[in-house]
Design a protein around this nucleic acid. Structure first.
Lengths: 145, 145
DNA sequence: AGAAAATAAGTGTATATACTCCTAATTATG
DNA sequence: CATAATTAGGAGTATATACACTTATTTTCT
């Protein structure tokens, strides 16, 4: 069936997931000396930028399910990289990067750069910027109600 | 730190994973009436194109870990959508789409098209093609030894 | 103020993902 | 030909992801 061939080649979901798998493995490998997975590194970076933030707010920013985020944060909390405390609104939990978390993040930065450079130089800066903006558009389109 | 802001905005891994999450939710929702997840649909499509194929070969094509693929295929096998049998080389397992699997695939195609159209029309055909080719380049770069 | 609606988060469950270690079968090598 | 090296696959474990359901708190409405 011609239609099936089209799906195999052009499915946005399949192609994004494939690229996601490939790139995650590259970044995981680069970050391995730090003991951080790429996803965990991303969380530390986000927290470093936002400062203290509630789980729901952080989840929205990252387009990640709230319950997924809770579980990922718990792993970082157990390693002392983030702290989770009650907010003024007793329902909320405020997540904060600890000093230890900040240290781990700083150590990881140059390793992240290795992986990132490989992708960006490989594509060329212009193509890379185009791709990045395409990804951003895709997120908007997929999240539209 | 300026560097951290750069990571947050430009990390290839974070942005790909974010887009991957967003799009997967869109496709999962579209495919929901079929009981297939987007990942499962993708496997059925791949098998429909390749015909009988060993687990390792299929894993390489999809840039997915062999053990992950085994587990994902087992779920489809239990639902009767794929068959897994020993190959001539007794070490290999040949995976084949069953008639039931082909039926499920056919029913899912129009639902896939809904989600796919949303992304492709949203981006515009030209941007979409650029994005697709960028994703393909990223996979090559990340998988390079 | 008290009841109802809304919001923030946690739990149970299921799938997706990949690594390490292990077994079985095949191929290569002496 | 017998043994070593290679290859295909499975099992155990851990993280990532999200849905449905539940609990606790806050806000809204009368």
């Amino acid at each position: 069936m011609a239609k099936v061939l089209e799906v195999a080649s052009f499915c946005a979901c399949a192609n994004l997931r494939k690229a996601s798998r490939a790139v995650t493995q590259l970044y995981d490998e680069s970050l391995q000396p730090t003991g951080l997975r790429a996803t965990q590194f991303t969380l530390l970076v986000a927290l470093s930028v936002t400062g203290s933030i509630s789980i729901t707010d952080l989840a929205q920013q990252l387009v990640i399910d709230r319950t997924t985020l809770t579980r990922n944060l718990t792993l970082l909390e157990h390693r002392g990289l983030v702290a989770i405390a009650k907010g003024d609104d007793q329902r909320t939990r405020l997540v904060t990067l600890t000093n230890q978390g900040r240290e781990a993040l700083m150590k990881a930065l140059p390793l992240w750069e290795q992986a990132q450079t490989r992708i960006v130089s490989g594509l060329g800066r212009a193509h890379w910027n185009t791709l990045l903006s395409g990804l951003s558009d895709v997120v908007s389109l997929a999240c539209e109600p």
